[in-house]
Simulated assay, not measured.
Amino acid sequence: MQDVNPSRLTGPPMRLRLGTTTLPMVGHVRMYVCGITPYDVTHLGHAATYIWADAAERVLRWHGHTVTVARNVTDVDDVLYAEARRRGESHTMLATLQRAAFEGTMATLQVRQPDLSPSAAQHIGHVVQLAAALLDRDAAYERNGTVYARTSHAYATTGLDRETALQRAAEFHDNPGDPDKDDPLDITVWQAATPDDEVSWPSPWGEGRPGWHAECAAMVLALFGASVDLHCGGADLAYPHHACEAALAEAATGVAPFARGWLRAGLVSVNGEKMAKSTGNLVLAEDLLREHSPGAIRLMCLNRPWAQPWEYSPAELDLAEATLEQLYAAAARLEAQPGAAAVPAALLDDLDVPRALAIALEDGGQAARTFIELLALS
């Protein structure tokens, strides 16, 4: 059900700018958010991405749009299976428990529950359909039960050179050295099963399972059709994941662009290194929530350009907590000021939270209250 004042629809046309892309919106907005692989705890880098996606959704809803958000769960993945083996438990149980923990953390951070929560395991049939469509269009080829998509061109859409793309493909386990590929940058849509595989499904090409990029492409196509209005995820997913996902969907449907706009949140680092389990520098969202308010964590993540990488430190969070207290004090002022309308206008302009915050603090009153409500900082 629409949860905004319909009178907002009668104002100037709503255009959301994200970077160099301006997105006029009409009525219904379709958002897809790359979700978690449910094998471990939620760190601040994950949380920041989902807080930004949530902020974009709230801005769109505030301006009178009905927004449908899908956030997937990648529950068919080698990393998940490996972690389950290490723990000595089933991958389905591990995925269920970690997904529940993640959703609890998101609820505490006031990230809206998505309207749709597809999982890769639920969409195996759609990946098979995607592979078949790509083969029909000669955008894919089959070797020894594996279906490969012709995606050697995809890296160009992200501004990378081929050498860097090859490095990224190896980093994300796309196996550029596979001798069955026509090109090292082609990606797997359907992977033939091996004797060591714990999970596989039937297909026209034999037992196997989907490739990661194909999972998201198939889920988007199944849920929203040939395109989405806004696709969200972390900046590290631009290539190969987002570029190959888009290439698969566009080749299968003939519709471009696959996504009208992209919101890729800047990466979070600690001590100069990207926050990741492999580097051992994780800052867990649940640990921060023990000592800090959800509003402060949200404000810390949002009070910067959305695409900008940033460095976490405890001082950053202390500053956000202090700024939030100033914001609450400003909101308590009763005098009328003109900034209330300027706050959502600033957020339409590249989700400019720092500018909107400056207006809220200076004008106070309704401007501050609008800022707090719109970005769920209470």
Rank of each mutant, 00 (worst) to 15 (best):
residue 89 E to R: 12
residue 257 P to I: 00
residue 278 S to D: 00
residue 270 V to K: 11
residue 150 R to E: 14
residue 362 E to D: 10
residue 246 A to D: 05
residue 146 T to R: 09
residue 135 L to S: 07
residue 258 F to E: 04
residue 306 W to T: 04
residue 110 Q to M: 11
residue 154 A to S: 09
residue 215 E to Y: 10
residue 241 H to R: 07
residue 332 A to Y: 04
residue 307 A to S: 15
residue 225 G to V: 07
residue 228 V to D: 08
residue 298 R to A: 15
residue 19 G to W: 03
residue 90 S to G: 15
residue 29 V to W: 13
residue 18 L to V: 07
residue 42 T to V: 11
residue 194 T to S: 15
residue 131 A to C: 12
residue 92 T to C: 10
residue 59 V to T: 08
residue 144 N to Y: 14
residue 180 D to Y: 01
residue 207 E to G: 11
residue 15 R to T: 15
residue 179 P to R: 06
residue 311 E to P: 11
residue 208 G to R: 00
residue 170 A to Y: 09
residue 238 A to L: 05
residue 177 G to F: 10
residue 47 A to M: 06
residue 274 K to C: 08
residue 376 A to C: 14
residue 216 C to D: 12
residue 140 A to R: 05
residue 89 E to L: 12
residue 187 I to H: 06
residue 310 W to R: 09
residue 12 P to N: 09
residue 65 H to C: 13
residue 58 R to A: 06
residue 209 R to W: 11
residue 227 S to W: 01
residue 178 D to F: 04
residue 241 H to Q: 03
residue 354 P to W: 12
residue 48 A to M: 04
residue 55 A to H: 06
residue 242 H to M: 06
residue 122 Q to D: 15
residue 363 D to Q: 07
residue 69 V to K: 15
residue 300 M to F: 10
residue 17 R to D: 09
residue 153 H to G: 15
residue 111 V to K: 02
residue 83 E to P: 04
residue 217 A to E: 05
residue 44 L to Y: 14
residue 86 R to V: 06
residue 214 A to F: 09
residue 357 L to I: 04
residue 248 L to V: 05
residue 221 L to S: 02
residue 376 A to T: 06
residue 349 D to Q: 12
residue 320 A to P: 12
residue 281 N to K: 08
